[in-house]
Simulated assay, not measured.
Amino acid sequence: MHWRELPRVERPLGGEVEMLLYALDRARQQFGWKTGGLGAEELRRTHAPSTMTLAGLVKHLAFVEDGFTARAAGEPIGPPWDVRGWVENDRWGWESALTDAPDELYGLWYTAVERSRGRLVGA
């Protein structure tokens, strides 16, 4: 999936839940638009004064998607987070993202977003 394939979101008419889901999807769409299509070099570049990279941020957001909605749904967090020790070592994702290919990072995030949507609809 490519960031352009993320569903376009329109402002819903509804209550607080609909507005919250709209805001979340809009933030996802914007993040995908801003980072989508970047190559390995751009994703791995640090942005002073921080050592943060966009690669690390993509992987971190995938973890946040899975972690939050798994907990909210009462489900265990699944791979790759459970087997690679992210929960015990927050730096693992930021550091390991530097060796991940862009397609892997984007795929991880898109898949986590889809799981989150499914869990939130189920909730």
Results as ranks from 00 to 15, higher is better:
A27I: 06
A72E: 13
R45S: 05
E88W: 01
V58H: 06
D82S: 08
E41S: 11
K59S: 09
T35I: 09
T51C: 08
E10Y: 04
R71Y: 06
D25H: 14
K34A: 13
E88H: 02
L61T: 10
W86D: 00
T46S: 14
D90H: 06
T35D: 08
E42I: 06
S50R: 12
G39T: 10
D25R: 09
E10A: 13
P76Y: 05
D82Y: 03
E88D: 01
G74D: 13
E10G: 05
A62G: 09
L24A: 12
H60S: 07
M19G: 15
H60Y: 10
E65Q: 15
K59E: 04
G56L: 01
P49L: 10
G85H: 00
G37P: 02
T69C: 08
E42C: 09
L38K: 11
V87D: 01
W33G: 11
E18C: 01
L54K: 04
R26E: 15
G78R: 01
A72K: 11
R44D: 10
V58P: 02
A40N: 02
T69D: 07
L13C: 13
A55P: 05
L57K: 10
M52A: 14
A27C: 12
E65M: 08
R44H: 10
Q29T: 15
A40G: 06
A40K: 08
A72C: 11
G37N: 03
R84T: 04
K59A: 10
L38D: 04
V58I: 09
R11K: 04
M52G: 07
S50I: 12
E42A: 11
E16I: 02
R28I: 13
G36N: 15
R71V: 10
D66N: 03
P12W: 03
A55W: 03
D82G: 02
Q29K: 13
K59R: 11
W81N: 01
G14N: 04
A55V: 08
L21D: 15
G32R: 07
V58C: 10
A40F: 02
T46H: 09
A40C: 02
A70L: 07
V83C: 03
G32H: 07
D82M: 02
G15H: 08
P80I: 00
E75P: 03
T69V: 09
E75A: 05
M19K: 15
G74I: 12
E16H: 06
V64L: 15
V17Q: 11
T51R: 14
L21Q: 15
K34I: 07
V83S: 05
E18Q: 13
A73Q: 04
D82I: 06
K59F: 13
G67L: 04
P12H: 05
E41P: 02
N89A: 01
W81L: 00
P12N: 05
L38Y: 08
R71Q: 12
R84M: 00
G32Y: 14
G14F: 14
L24N: 09
G37D: 10
D25I: 05
G74M: 12
E75Q: 10
L24T: 14
V17S: 14
T46D: 07
L43M: 07
G15T: 02
A48W: 14
H60E: 08
I77P: 01
T35S: 09
R44W: 08
